[in-house]
Design a protein around this nucleic acid. Structure first.
Length: 111
DNA sequence: GGTGTGACAATGG
DNA sequence: GCCATTGCCACAC
């Protein structure tokens, strides 16, 4: 639909589809978008999420290790962890506890 | 139109 | 098993 930034739009879309209390990874989203190697692009897209006009739960997206690598991009370094804890997601040492259990794979859940 | 970059991921030593 | 390097692809300048 929107021709402006197809990839970005997809990233915003999938990120918004992440269920409450769940987390996903850049690689999983990138793979769902058809660009497995574009995991870095996912992070960059979320970096521009402020210009998307909508709220993107980027705090639900972490790296493959479950670490809150991008917490520094939320304005305040604690914002990401606070948002996750607000969703009953335990965060310990900048990492999502039970990450393997809370992991949400769009490619597996959405199809 | 080419270069640099970027909130990652996988491989190698 | 841990640290360093490479690959990757789409966007901004």
């Amino acid at each position: 639909m929107n021709s402006e930034g197809n990839f970005f739009e997809k990233v915003y879309r999938v990120t918004s589809l992440i269920p409450f209390g769940r987390v996903s990874t850049y690689g999983a989203i990138a793979r769902y978008l058809g660009s497995t190697g574009s995991a870095r692009m996912v992070g960059w897209a979320l970096n521009n999420c402020h210009g998307s006009g909508e709220f993107i739960p980027a705090h639900r997206v972490v790296n493959r290790n479950g670490f809150l690598t991008g917490k520094h991009h939320f304005g305040t370094p604690d914002a990401m962890q606070q948002l996750l804890e607000n969703e009953n997601v335990r965060v310990v040492d900048d990492r999502v506890a039970d990450f393997g259990r809370l992991f949400w794979d769009p490619s597996a859940e959405l199809g």
